[in-house]
Amino acid sequence: MIRTLALFIFAVSASAPVFAEESSPPWSMADQYFDTDEMAHARHHILSHHGATRQLSIMADRLEVQSADEGDTLVWDGNAWYGGDVNKLWLKSEGDYSLESDELEEAEVQALWSHAISPYFDLQGGLRYDLEPKGRTHAVLGLQGLAPYWFEVDAAAFLSSEGDLTARMEAEYEFRLTQRLILQPRVEAELSAQDIPDLETGSGLTSLNAGLRLRYEIIREFAPYIGVEWQGSFGGTADYLEAAGEDSDRAVFVAGIRAWF
């Protein structure tokens, strides 16, 4: 206990300018006064209690109903993770359920291993399985984190069991109008390296969604919101939609909740 306290004191004092050039790394200074093996054990003890603890987070980032002329759609986008500061196990899921036709239109689940490669970004890899459509399996490689100026970004590439290469990029930002009222712009883009006729997807930029959501945090863990979103399709994907008699772009009104614990 004394050695652990001594290590903490040396680590704090080493951050002062007078010690800045006398130690590298700063907390190795304690090795001059205590047994090296015992200090290594003390360092491990401190790391275990100040950074290596395991935590669990579950979040429904978007649970909303989107209303358009074609009908209403229930949309979910959620995740859960377990782990420490460096390594985590992530589970992600998102999808659409048509309330008009009473059927599942799109749904996927991802299981990812996440490793911190910087203080603000994690490299993620794992598997994605599409429940709808077509039930395909994908290998996933992605990057998630906090970009400069507090933009939350999530980008991933997917290689399906059919050999199709696609990608998805998301970016969000939060304007705190008050302590509880938050305006959140959000953009999501999807791309494909090739035409995928089975999924009615063209190559290049396939879709782009851009929206604004205004939420009120009743408590930090629970916030209802309303908003609007523009959804557009491009290239071959737009051609597939128009051939089926559907619009290649539309504006929707959204209402939902964001919750976490």
Rank of each mutant, 00 (worst) to 15 (best):
K88S: 07
D85F: 05
W113V: 14
D69V: 04
G78Q: 07
D72Q: 14
Y82T: 03
D85A: 15
D77W: 10
E108T: 06
R136A: 13
W76E: 02
E132Q: 14
Y120M: 12
L131S: 06
G95R: 02
Y120A: 11
E70I: 03
E108R: 15
R136N: 14
R128Y: 02
N79C: 01
L89A: 15
L127Y: 12
V109K: 08
V86M: 11
G78L: 09
L112F: 11
S93G: 07
G84T: 08
E106P: 03
F121G: 07
W76G: 02
V65E: 09
L89Y: 13
S98Y: 01
L143W: 08
L91H: 01
R128S: 05
S67A: 14
S67P: 01
G71Y: 01
S93Y: 05
L143N: 06
W113L: 11
D69R: 14
R136K: 13
A111E: 11
G84Q: 12
R136S: 08
E64P: 00
D122L: 12
L143H: 07
D96Y: 13
S98K: 03
L123K: 05
V65N: 06
A116S: 15
E106T: 13
V75C: 01
P119Q: 11
V65M: 13
E100V: 00
A111C: 09
G83I: 09
G145E: 12
P133M: 09
K92D: 02
D96I: 04
D72F: 04
V65L: 13
A139W: 15
A107S: 12
A111P: 09
S93I: 02
W113T: 12
Q66E: 14
D96K: 15
D122A: 10
L123T: 06
F121H: 11
K92P: 00
V86A: 11
D102Y: 10
Y129G: 10
V140W: 12
Y82R: 05
P133Y: 11
G83K: 05
N87Y: 12
S93A: 10
D96F: 06
T137K: 02
A111Q: 13
S101A: 12
E64M: 03
Q144H: 13
E94I: 00
S114D: 06
W90F: 07
E64V: 01
L89T: 12
D102F: 05
A139D: 04
A116Y: 10
G126F: 08
E106C: 02
G71A: 06
V65T: 13
L131G: 14
A139K: 06
E108C: 05
L127T: 06
A116K: 12
